[in-house]
């Protein structure tokens, strides 16, 4: 008959407990290690092996490279991520053999326009890196906007 009173006791007790809200802009949440935020890209480490582009489920990574005629090694020309379609699964990070792409700790991902969501090497520079390392090779990767200019991708099968 009076079990509802227990509910009042429960809520009444909570009235004097500490609140659990994180006051967001002033108080930032703790980001655990290995968290999957926006990417950091290390152009100096990248060997243009294309592993990240192949493993990406949403096919948002574009790697443009050319082969050095002498050493037969691949040289990175450009690297972009269509971040608006990225689902932050972290597969690229796992696939990369040289740790050139890392999932970072940036979680404030909102922007005012789709174009701003397009990640070029400059935007993905890890903290402490200057823009000197950005590679501008012969080719230029798809830079968002008009999908008709997007290069055809190899389908996985």
């Amino acid at each position: 008959m009076f079990r509802w009173a227990k509910g009042y006791a429960y809520t009444g007790k909570r009235l004097f407990e500490k609140t659990v809200t994180i006051q967001y802009p002033q108080q930032k949440p703790k980001i655990p290690e290995g968290w999957r935020g926006r990417h950091y890209f290390y152009p100096d480490r990248c060997t243009a092996c294309d592993a990240c582009a192949r493993v990406c489920p949403t096919e948002v990574i574009t790697v443009v490279s050319h082969r050095d005629p002498e050493t037969k090694k691949k040289i990175l020309d450009d690297y972009t991520i269509e971040f608006e379609r990225c689902i932050l699964c972290g597969y690229c990070e796992e696939a990369c053999p040289v740790d050139a792409i890392k999932m970072g700790d940036v979680y404030e991902l909102a922007s005012y326009a789709r174009e701003q969501e397009f990640m070029t090497q400059e935007k993905m520079l890890p903290p402490g890196y200057s823009t000197d390392v950005v590679v501008h090779g012969q080719g230029e990767a798809y830079r968002g906007g008009d999908y008709r200019t997007k290069p055809e991708k190899k389908v996985n099968h």
Binding site: T11, G12, R14, L15, F16, E17, T19, V20, T21, Q23
Partner: peptide, 13 residues
């Protein structure tokens, strides 16, 4: 405010 504190949140602040 009261409802907020009952629900362990600060309410409008």
């Amino acid at each position: 405010k009261i409802l907020g504190h009952i629900q362990l949140r600060p309410g409008p602040n």
